[in-house]
Amino acid sequence: MKNEIDIQIKVPNQTRYLSLIGRIGEDLAHQLQDFKGDRENLANQLNVVLTEAMVNAIRHANAGDPDKQVDIRITISDNELLLQVFDQGQGFDLNSIQDPGFDEEELLETGGRGIFIIRALMDSVLYRRIPGGNVLEMRKRL
């Protein structure tokens, strides 16, 4: 337990806070004890995943309502990183979101890459209903 980190942050449902949350992810990657992998790569991945998950909560789950809130919890144990992003909205069906295709026409879609990016960079992604909203849970082995 001595190396466990548990950070909880609440921010308004606004995109102006994306850089703050992304930067916390980056800083964590730089501070991790005993991490043997590529820190710069992990830092960018956490920045990207936290940004995408937060945008998803702001725009899709909380429907852009600036009075709502996004709660983020980052838990790191010896061998696993868990990112949880809580929204207060109606939610969506994660399983219905298909990965974008890569043929010429599909590559020119202007949206629909957020969940794909999260899935590509994390080991497991789950979205479930909880009292008062939903949580997007993303795990990565360290």
């Binding site: 992304g22 960018n44 920045n47 940004t51 995408e52 945008v55 890459r113």
Partner: peptide, 9 residues
Amino acid sequence: FIDSSGLGA
């Protein structure tokens, strides 16, 4: 740093 919205733009 770029995210999916930056790529989309």
